[in-house]
Design a protein around this nucleic acid. Structure first.
Lengths: 145, 145
DNA sequence: ATTTGATTTAGAATAATTCTAAACTATATT
DNA sequence: AATATAGTTTAGAATTATTCTAAATCAAAT
């Protein structure tokens, strides 16, 4: 895919505008890159991919764009151990699985309502607005995914 | 508490030995510091506290000791967002709650077997050896803890 | 047409962590 | 007990992801 679909473009402009931010070619491109290959790239990987289509973009701009996308809620940051932050445009509730062998991160869909149920383990005076569930391990041979 | 309790000392020596590592004054001190105040200190905080009782210790040694404790299974690393790694000597299954206001991290005990149940959301070819559950939010006024 | 404010950019700065190599310590071996 | 061996500690340098800075660019509003 070379460019943002109309639907995604609309969602992007709407979300950015809602957060008081402008829609720019760089932000569109970075968002497009994230949607294009949803393998939880790092900022550096996003930079490399973006640069191939928009050679003048800088690393700082990639960070700026990613931050803008996170701020306006279209992208989630995924931090695993001390590794570089990864970026994930999957907005539906899900967990993450981190393969120790390949280092890859996979989305794991969770049953409807599970994330909300988890919050119930918290004592009454704890109020959570985000729940993060990360598994670490390895993929059994045979299936790669 | 000024020094390691006999029980903890034994557990430490046993665990280190089991991992092919020696029991040293520095490792004992760092372990003692972690057990003493269980508020998920960063390496830097551990360094400061340790230095007050063992002024010649170096930062590198603190990192070495923490790594040794993690390797031999007595301490867990807790990574929240991009903040410095924190260290937690609580070995029973628990979740973490990260207060956005104070930055503090709290242990949240979870019901028996819950962590194991969570693994069931994974597809068959995913094999997890660790489960991490982190809540983020704030503490309601009134109770501080 | 001009002002204003946001965005992009390159490069410098920051900060947590890891690495390096020398000094030290403890254990094992003679 | 003396020596060799291997693990540990130490200070400081190196690394690296990320943030900061200030100038240049751009777009919207007056």
């Amino acid at each position: 895919m070379k460019t943002l679909r109309q639907m995604d473009r609309g969602a992007l402009s709407y979300a950015l505008d809602h957060a008081g931010q402008r829609t720019t070619p760089q932000r569109e491109m970075v968002f497009s890159i994230l949607l294009d290959e949803r393998n939880h790239p790092t900022a550096d990987e996003v930079y490399t991919r973006t640069k191939s289509r928009m050679p003048t973009i800088s690393m700082a701009t990639v960070y700026n764009c990613l931050e803008a996308l996170v701020t306006c809620g279209l992208v989630k940051q995924v931090n695993i151990e001390r590794e570089p932050t990864r970026y994930c445009p999957n907005l539906s509730p899900h967990a993450h699985f981190h393969c120790r062998e390949t280092g890859r991160v996979y989305d794991v869909p969770v049953p409807e309502g599970m994330m909300k149920d988890l919050v119930k383990v918290l004592p009454g005076n704890y109020s959570a607005d985000s729940v993060e569930l990360v598994f670490r391990g390895h993929l059994e041979k045979g299936k790669t995914k």
